[in-house]
Amino acid sequence: MLRLPRFDYLEPKSLKQALKMREASGDNAMYVAGGTDLYPNMKRRHQDPTTVISLANIRALTGVRNRDGHTCIGANTTLTQVAKHRRIKRHYPAIATAAGSISTPLLRNMGTLGGNLCLDTRCNYYNQTLEWRKSIDYCMKKDGAICWVAPSSPRCWAVNSSDLAPVTVAIGAEMALVSADGERVVPAGKFYNDDGIEYLTKRPDEILTELRLPQPNGWDATYLKLARRGSFDFPVLGVAAWIRWDGDTVADARIVLGAVASYPMPVPEAGAAIIGTSLGDDAIETAATAAFKPSKPMDNTDHGLSWRKQMTRVYVARALKELRANNKLI
């Protein structure tokens, strides 16, 4: 059977204690929340911290709060809680939908918002056991030299596969981080890096404490997920679309693609294509094409890459049509 390697397990009760422990244990330490990403990775030996610091008992990280009209979701909130929370469902349905689409109800009872936002990037040359990876002589992301997805490329193309990440970027949420140096707040769009290895701008010692959602005032957003099966599966494409309405006209828009790049990929051209329109079919078509062009899935997830690219067009159009249908003025 597949077992965990040996490691030290620490259970701090406060953020302060956690940061201290992290400082004491150095770079071989990692945080864990629900463990649904980290433990499988450790079992397959592609993440190998020798110290694991559990954030599960830190009170400050739990709960959904309302601060100045912003809804703030603690990093430890489970995905089930996020998906079922009344206020989130009402004002941020895209967040609730994305959270509720993750894996299975069982996993959502364990997996946390923070873990999801910090989810390791994925690649099916990487999410494999040690023995398997040995047979391809490993790869750049872990223990090897070459990226098998694009052997001539100097970088890793592992995929950001979080369902929530593209939504946070699209709606303009913010991440609150703490470290020994204090607190800082980063817009979601700046939280992610276009790199399969250094996929977060967050320093490894920083703790994500909460996700701050913008005030729900005059904008609408949605999230569509494409995956092979109705449960268990990571997205092979996620489309998060955000629109600020001015009556029946699009005043501002953002479209962000998930699971086609190492980061949630904004497609400003697609948003620009609908600004000033009432989301007629033509405008939607133009936006869908604009999103389709830069969408470059690689051969490292389920499904064929050209089909996934084609689906960008379909899913962006469907997301925009959904938003159009939501607007009672149209």
Partner: peptide
């Protein structure tokens, strides 16, 4: 009371 995956929960937790 919540169903969870015991292969991913530490006993100590």
């Amino acid at each position: 009371g919540d169903p969870v995956l015991s292969c991913l929960v530490l006993g100590r937790a």
